[in-house]
C-alpha cells in the first residue's frame, strides 16, 4: 500500500471530506493503486526541465481600475441556504 489509513484520513481532513470506515479502506486501496501507476513518472529525468503550469500562449490581460455596479444583493443571496439580513449565516466559527 502506498498510502496508510492515517494518510487517507489526513488528506480527507484537509479536503473536508467525511469518510466512513469502509470508504477509508476503499480509497486507501484505490488511491494506492493509482499512485502506483503514477510512479511511472519517476523513470524520467526532469532535473533540468521547467514545469508547465499554464497553457496560455497569449499575453497578459489587464483590467482598468473602474468600479461598477455589483450584483444586486438579492441575487447574491438568492442561493444561500441560510442567511440573516443580507449576511450568510454559518455555525459559529470559533468553537
Amino acid at each position: 500500500m502506498r498510502l496508510t489509513l492515517e494518510q487517507v484520513r489526513h488528506v480527507a481532513g484537509l479536503a473536508r471530506l467525511k469518510l466512513g470506515p469502509e470508504e477509508e479502506q476503499r480509497y486507501q486501496q484505490q488511491l494506492s493503486a493509482i499512485l502506483e501507476a503514477m510512479e511511472k513518472l519517476r523513470e524520467l529525468d526532469t532535473e533540468s526541465v521547467e514545469p508547465t503550469s499554464h497553457s496560455t500562449l497569449s499575453g497578459f490581460l489587464w483590467r482598468e481600475d473602474l468600479s461598477r455596479q455589483s450584483l444586486e444583493v438579492e441575487k447574491a443571496l438568492a442561493n444561500a441556504p441560510e442567511k440573516v439580513g443580507t449576511a450568510f449565516s454559518v455555525p459559529k466559527i470559533i468553537e
Binding site: 483590467r63 481600475d65 473602474l66 468600479s67 461598477r68 455589483s70 450584483l71 444583493v73 447574491a76 443571496l77 439580513g85 443580507t86 449576511a87 450568510f88
Partner: peptide, 22 residues
C-alpha cells in the same frame, strides 16, 4: 484602489453586508 483586485466591485468601506459583491 477604486475597485477590487480581480473584479469591478467597489472597495468602499461601510456598505451593508454583501452589497459590494458580484
Amino acid at each position: 484602489t477604486r475597485s477590487k483586485i480581480f473584479c469591478s466591485c467597489s472597495t468602499e468601506f461601510g456598505a451593508p453586508p454583501n452589497h459590494h459583491t458580484c
